[in-house]
Write a protein that binds this DNA or RNA. Structure first.
Lengths: 200, 200
DNA sequence: CATTTACGAAACGAGCCCGTTGCGTATCGG
DNA sequence: CCGATACGCAACGGGCTCGTTTCGTAAATG
């Protein structure tokens, strides 16, 4: 009955290396972030990049999808703090968060998965959309609805269409805009363009 | 010196089957349209679906990329005829062309390739952007510039940003909008939203 | 008819990745 | 120290695709 640590109750034997687990997940995210599709993602490649034996991976995850889910779950998608001073400022802040992440391989995982694997891994995508996309989408929705209420935005504005305008324009720059990092003033320019519209 | 057909000068022997060639290209486009990435695209799968021996494929194309390029080259991307009556009508027409194609597997090839394979097949993507994307982009640019000249659009409008607004919003609906076919009135709604802007 | 080339089908050796196993070593509790 | 578990590494048999070759047949020229 003498258990040294009342918590955990370690099962005796060498404990699993946290470092190895970290390395495996890092390697997985790296590969996905570099554009490797889930289908082409090979355990061998992950093990090799992580400097780890395949055994160590199979001991923890029974299949590839579980590993991918766990790896993606470590990605945080915090909604940036919003000042609430003006709709324009909050929208810029939301886009700025997207811009910063577009340059980080880690965050590209989200985009790559959602954009490319929807057909072949619907469960994975769905789970991930709910976790990483939906919170920000909801934040943007609230900003827009607040703007309509305060009169900063058109009273007849279609909220969903407004979100599509902003997000879509940002998405366009991310995928089809000039190569390289997105310019620092892009969020501001997009928001102003969307607010003003194209008509005189 | 007696050549029966002055043209062609057929090299003697059984001529290559046009039907087989057609079937190969159709099968390739089908697979890509269904979401198969160029990397995962297997010659065996193409041959199988085309009802053709692998020999017949390798006799014509020495590698997979050449086949994909040829297959994609058969896709036409005609710029829809523009009435020129108003900027609004022309923009709607351009988006309507995108909408119609978004439901056709054939035309999804373009999107799938450009969106997913940019990193791994840059030459292929570049060649294809020039062929299938650039003409429409140019058409839209001209419509917008004409609108600025005629006063239908803001004189201080950033043309590139305007194109990003329209194309990006459409792109957003294609990829992230509610599943299924895009509603018939979407182009009109997008154009009106972009023209009006979100501000009152 | 003979010749030439293309066809579909099948088989080949090679390479990659699968998931598993055995090995020697490392690290924990007792 | 001992038993237990994890580690990295190498190897296994199995499956799939590769690009090539062989085979018997089909379709063209002369």
């Amino acid at each position: 009955m003498s258990i040294q640590e009342s918590a955990a109750a370690r099962p005796a034997g060498r404990p699993r290396s946290e470092k190895a687990e970290k390395a495996i997940i890092e390697a997985t995210l790296d590969l996905i972030g570099e554009g490797t599709g889930v289908s082409e993602l090979s355990i061998e490649a992950i093990a090799s990049r992580a400097g780890v034996g395949k055994t160590t991976i199979y001991r923890r995850w029974s299949n590839k999808e579980d590993l991918v889910v766990d790896a993606l779950s470590t990605l945080k998608a915090p909604v940036p703090p919003l000042t609430g001073t003006s709709v324009r400022d909050d929208l810029i802040r939301l886009l700025e968060a997207m811009r910063e992440e577009s340059g980080m391989a880690r965050s590209r995982c989200v985009m790559n998965i959602v954009m490319n694997e929807t057909d072949r891994h619907p469960r994975l995508t769905e789970r991930f959309v709910k976790r990483a996309i939906e919170p920000r989408r909801q934040a943007m929705r609230e900003v827009i609805e607040r703007g309509i209420a305060t009169g900063e935005l058109r009273p007849d504005l279609d909220v969903d269409m407004g979100m599509a305008l902003i997000t879509g324009t940002m998405l366009w720059h991310t995928k089809w805009g000039p190569a390289g990092d997105l310019p620092a003033d892009l969020p501001e320019r997009i928001v102003d363009a969307v607010l003003a519209g194209m008509a005189p």
